[in-house]
Amino acid sequence: MRMNRKLFLKLENNKVLLAVTLVMLAAASTSAFGETPEEKGLAIAEEVDRRDLGFGDSSSLLKMELTNKQGQSSTRELRILTLEVPERAEGDKSLVVFDHPRDIEGTAFLSFTKILDPDDQWLYLPALKRVKRISSANKSGPFVGSEFAYEDLLSQEVDKYDYRWLRDEACGEAADGLACFVIERFPRYENSGYARQVTWIDQQEYRPIRIDFYDRKDSLLKTLTLSRYNQYLGQYWRADDQYMVNHQTGKTTRLTFDEWELRVGVNESDFNPNRLKRLR
């Protein structure tokens, strides 16, 4: 801003018209005076990632409530175990174990997130008593019938997207009183279900507050609102409530997290496909 004003003052004596034009250009794109919106967007995303660095591993209980347009609902319960992989070129490892409904109890899903390639995935079906490796490029389908796609829940990595900062504004209802960065991100991996996402990140703690998902034809598809944040280990923020509304079908899914624990001390060997059978 200061540079702006200086430039303006310097030109004031000369051609006002040119100055106005330049200032307008400057407002439209800050490129002449520092970072581009793309750089700023990426910087914010990196800061989000940086602040979450070093959590080591986490575990949580998760209740998933699916509701259709008529208000009929159904719940699923699962546990998620995440192992942080510090290298930026590699994604985290996640293990999902289903507890409820009874007929899928003990079903375990293990994934090693990749940045741009299809993730490595294994599934253990207790009824079949076998571990199956799943080869699929699809990450965009509904996660257990919910409004969350697999790609919304797991496998969030900085380098999966290109970014662009849009504007700063109040975070809105979900985080009253906080100011947010609004950045746009464009999936770089193939087979994403989205053309882009618009995310609201609070400027104080760099937590995602809201995400708007746009489908492949760039129509607003879903809105995710994250709330009831708690801080763990004096640093890491986790939302206990994640609410997804599908604007096109009227269906909703609420994720309620419970018993967040960080640095519980799991290690690589817990994420071995061959050990899926012994989980319970």
Binding site: D103, I104, T107, L125, A127, L128, N138, F143, G145
Partner: peptide, 16 residues
């Protein structure tokens, strides 16, 4: 249980 788990598997591997 097997049918339910098949369904889960199938749903996990479908695209948008």
């Amino acid at each position: 249980n097997l049918a339910a788990q098949y369904l889960l598997l199938f749903e996990m591997s479908l695209p948008y």
